[in-house]
């Protein structure tokens, strides 16, 4: 599914990622952990094609497509979804309108007709209900005046509606209370399927109590320094990053 080879990324001339190798197969959930400034968010932006994140070396391929040749919106249409750490507000644009535009943009990219309005409405309402979102929220402007938990729930609803083949969740759990954390975990677990892959980026182990990963990688100073299974996350929880010889304040 997703194959990252020897990925080097610079931001504003500064080397952030220094040779990442990562393969995520269909049906797998991987977790990336690491201290602040280790390059976790940079990895998610580089995969999804944000402007200013310059790949200087290496490759990213998804389902055989060279992602580095595609614009951010094309990568999204190919099936890559990024759950943001800080979802932005878009005043005056309702959640419903935003989602409809997104769904139809992706269909247009694939050469499909627009989704019938009734069908779309049904889909969104069903996904909102599954994730226990108040239907009134769908009429409100995207993330405007939403609490931290509501924003993250909104990300999960968007993910459910767009139904991506590959999802990367960038510290989607940060700053959430336990109820909101459960919502996020529930959203991610609903995406688990034999044909889908998921990458969870997190600073803390606690999300992984709810979303049990198949593999855990530790990122430090732009490189994956250790890989393992769920037990690696437990080990980090108990002993800290220092135990691996990583400076917690490397940034």
């Amino acid at each position: 599914m997703l194959e990252i080879k020897n990925l080097h990324v610079e931001v504003a001339g500064q080397k952030i990622l220094k040779g990442i190798d990562l393969t995520i197969n269909a049906g797998e959930v991987h977790a990336i952990m690491g201290p602040n400034g280790s390059g976790k968010s940079t990895l998610s932006y580089a995969i999804c094609g944000k402007d200013g994140y310059e790949v200087t070396e290496g490759s990213i391929t998804y389902k055989g497509k060279n992602f580095l040749e595609l614009e951010a919106n094309e990568r999204a249409a190919e099936g890559a979804f990024l759950g943001f750490q800080y979802p932005v507000e878009i005043p005056g644009v309702s959640n419903m309108n935003f989602l409809k535009t997104a769904v139809n943009s992706i269909r247009k990219y694939k050469g499909e007709d627009e989704m019938a309005p009734v069908e779309f409405l049904k889909l969104v309402r069903a996904k909102a209900a599954e994730l226990e979102m108040d239907p009134e929220m769908l009429k409100r402007a995207v993330n405007v005046g939403f609490s931290g938990g509501e924003k993250k729930r909104n990300e999960m609803v968007q993910m459910a509606v767009l139904d991506p083949g590959f999802s990367v969740l960038d510290e989607t759990d940060s700053g959430l209370d336990i109820d909101a954390l459960r919502v996020v975990a529930d959203g991610i677990n609903r995406m688990r399927a034999p044909e889908k892959s998921i990458l969870v980026i997190t600073h803390y182990q606690r999300l992984l109590d709810y979303v049990v990963p198949d593999f855990v990688h530790v990122l430090a100073d732009g490189k994956i320094v250790k890989s393992g299974d769920k037990s690696l996350a437990m080990e980090l929880e108990k002993q800290g990053y220092g135990h691996l010889g990583i400076d917690e304040n490397a940034a």
Binding site: C48, G49, K50, D51, E71, A72, N73, A76, A77, F81, L82, F84, P87, V88, I90, F98, T101, A102, V103, S105, I106, Y109, Q158, L162
Partner: peptide, 11 residues
């Protein structure tokens, strides 16, 4: 804002 929209598939 732009990247957020692009990431959801809008050009």
């Amino acid at each position: 804002q732009l990247f957020y929209c692009l990431q959801r598939g809008l050009d």
